[in-house]
C-alpha cells in the first residue's frame, strides 16, 4: 500500500511491533499529531465473533465520560408531548411527517436519528434511505425509545453507538487529540468496559483479537489486549 512521506515519518516515532499499555499509547498518539486540525482519537477492534449469528452481533451504546468533542446534530421523530420533550432536551430537529417528507427529498443535515416507537410505522418507510447511511433508529442502539429527552441529552453529552461490521471489526471515535491524556483514557476505558460486558455468552474462543489506537491521519498503535481489558474492568 502506498504511504506518503508524512505517514512514513510517523511510523518511525514508535515500535510498530510492540504492544502498548493504554496510557503509553496515548502518549505516543500525542507525538503523532501532524495535521492542522483537531484529529479524532479512534479505537479499532478485531473481534472473534461471527456477526452473521444474531446473538453474536455486537451493537449498543456507551456514554463517554469526557464526551466526543464533536457537536452531534440530533433529529427526533416524535409527535405531541414527546416532540415537546425532545425540543426541550435540545434536539436540533423534531418532527413527524413533515421531516419524513424532507428526508425523502434528500435532506440529511443530522448525525443521529431517534424515534419514538409510535413513529416506527412511518419511519420504517425511510429504511432504504436511512438504513444505507446507518441512521435507521434501532431499539438496541437506544434510538427507538419513549424516553426521548434522556436519549437526546445522553447523545448530545457524548453517548456513542458502536456496531460490529460484517468483517467482525469495529472503529469507534473516543474523543479528540486536544483532550487531556486522562480524558482520552477515561473514554477508552468506558468504551472497552462496554465491549467486554457485551461479550456474547455463546462465544467460544478469543473475544478480542486485536486492539489499535489511532488518530484520523496516523498509523495505528497496537494495544496489549489483556492489560487494556483488565484495566477497563477495574475502572
Amino acid at each position: 500500500m502506498f504511504r506518503g512521506k508524512r505517514y512514513k515519518k510517523l511510523e518511525k516515532v514508535f515500535d510498530k511491533t510492540k504492544l502498548y499499555d493504554v496510557s503509553e499509547a496515548i502518549d505516543i498518539l500525542k507525538k503523532l499529531k501532524s495535521t492542522k486540525f483537531d484529529e479524532t482519537v479512534e479505537v479499532g477492534l478485531k473481534l472473534g465473533v461471527d456477526p452473521k449469528q444474531a446473538d453474536q452481533y455486537i451493537r449498543g451504546t456507551v456514554s463517554l465520560p469526557a464526551g466526543t468533542g464533536k457537536t452531534v446534530r440530533v433529529l427526533v421523530f416524535a409527535k405531541g408531548e414527546k416532540a415537546t420533550e425532545a425540543k426541550e432536551a435540545g434536539a436540533d430537529y423534531v418532527g413527524d411527517d413533515d421531516i419524513i417528507d424532507k428526508i425523502k427529498g434528500g435532506w440529511f443535515d443530522f448525525d443521529l436519528a431517534i424515534a419514538t416507537p409510535d413513529m416506527m410505522g412511518s419511519v420504517g418507510k425511510l429504511g432504504k434511505i436511512l438504513g444505507t447511511k446507518g441512521l435507521m433508529p434501532n431499539p438496541k442502539a437506544g434510538t427507538v425509545t419513549m424516553e426521548v429527552d434522556k436519549a437526546v441529552k445522553e447523545f448530545k453529552a457524548g453517548r456513542i453507538e458502536y456496531r460490529i461490521s460484517k468483517f467482525a471489526d469495529m472503529h469507534v471515535p473516543v474523543g479528540k487529540i486536544s483532550f487531556s491524556n486522562e480524558d482520552i483514557q477515561k473514554n477508552i476505558l468506558a468504551f472497552l468496559s462496554a465491549i467486554v460486558r457485551a461479550k456474547p455468552a455463546s462465544l467460544k474462543g478469543t473475544y478480542i483479537f486485536t486492539m489499535t489506537l489511532s488518530l484520523t491521519m496516523s498509523p495505528g498503535v497496537k494495544l496489549d489486549v489483556s492489560k487494556a481489558t483488565a484495566v477497563a474492568i477495574k475502572a
Binding site: 416507537p117 409510535d118 434501532n138 431499539p139 438496541k140 427507538v144
Partner: peptide, 19 residues
C-alpha cells in the same frame, strides 16, 4: 409497534427482525 408502542416483547421482536 406504532399501534402498541409500550409493548416490550413487540419491540424486542422488531429489534431482532431489524438486525
Amino acid at each position: 409497534v406504532e399501534k402498541d408502542p409500550h409493548n416490550p416483547q413487540l419491540l424486542a421482536k422488531f429489534e431482532k427482525l431489524q438486525h
